[in-house]
């Protein structure tokens, strides 16, 4: 009987992935904990504005559990996970555009809450402590940047990834990432100041 002998892995991250693929639940959890924050940022950069980030994260988590065995090269794991996240966000965007969200509202509940359903919903989505939050407004404005600028900017804003790490994740040269972040910051500033921005040509490669 011939058995395949796994190559010994010295890189701790490769070893973690290998253990997770072998069914080690603790390793899989550790893998998720290590990556879930930047995955959340990728989702934030690609999801529809109204989509729930936590729901999308759950979707990615489920796919990770089910498909982690698909990853053959440990060096490709981050890229694979990013692709999963982007696909989840885009799939949701497609379904959201195809089918408007509906909510059944009992007007008696709304009246009890002191206003029309429309007013009540505005209050839910726009509590005073948040609608005046400048930081959230800047994040919301970043949603108007082109995707190729928004993603590196938000990844950098997480303050956990260097330019080099972002470049590896996005599979771009480090200088390109830096240029895109610089441009994104300039566009964001224009958006904050004037409500619009200018971009010439295509994103740097």
């Amino acid at each position: 009987m011939i058995e395949a002998v796994a190559q010994p892995t010295t890189d701790p991250r490769s070893a973690l992935l290998a253990r997770a693929q072998a069914g080690d639940r603790a390793a899989l959890d550790a893998l998720w904990h290590e990556h879930r924050r930047w995955v959340a940022v990728v989702l934030l950069a690609h999801k529809p504005a109204s989509a729930d980030l936590e729901d999308l994260l759950q979707e990615v988590a489920t796919i990770l559990v089910a498909r982690v065995g698909d990853v053959r090269d440990p060096a490709c794991f981050k890229g694979w996970l990013r692709t999963v996240a982007i696909n989840c966000a885009r799939a949701l965007a497609r379904s959201a555009s195809a089918r408007p969200m509906l909510r059944l509202e009992d007007p008696r509940r709304s009246e009890a809450n002191g206003g029309s359903p429309r007013q009540a919903c505005h209050r839910e989505a726009d509590p005073s402590d948040r609608c005046h939050d400048e930081a959230d407004q800047v994040l919301a404005l970043s949603g108007r940047l082109p995707e190729e600028y928004r993603e590196p900017l938000l990844l950098r804003s997480l303050n956990e990834l260097s330019y080099r790490q972002i470049a590896r994740l996005l599979e771009l040269p480090e200088t390109t990432v830096e240029t895109r972040i610089t441009r994104a910051r300039r566009m964001l500033r224009e958006l904050v100041e004037t409500g619009t921005f200018s971009v010439a040509g295509t994103a740097p490669r």
């Binding site: 959890d29 995955v39 959340a40 936590e54 759950q58 988590a61």
Partner: peptide
């Protein structure tokens, strides 16, 4: 916003 990630565990 990303704080949501801290409470999402694997299924």
């Amino acid at each position: 916003a990303v704080g949501a990630a801290d409470v999402v565990e694997l299924p």
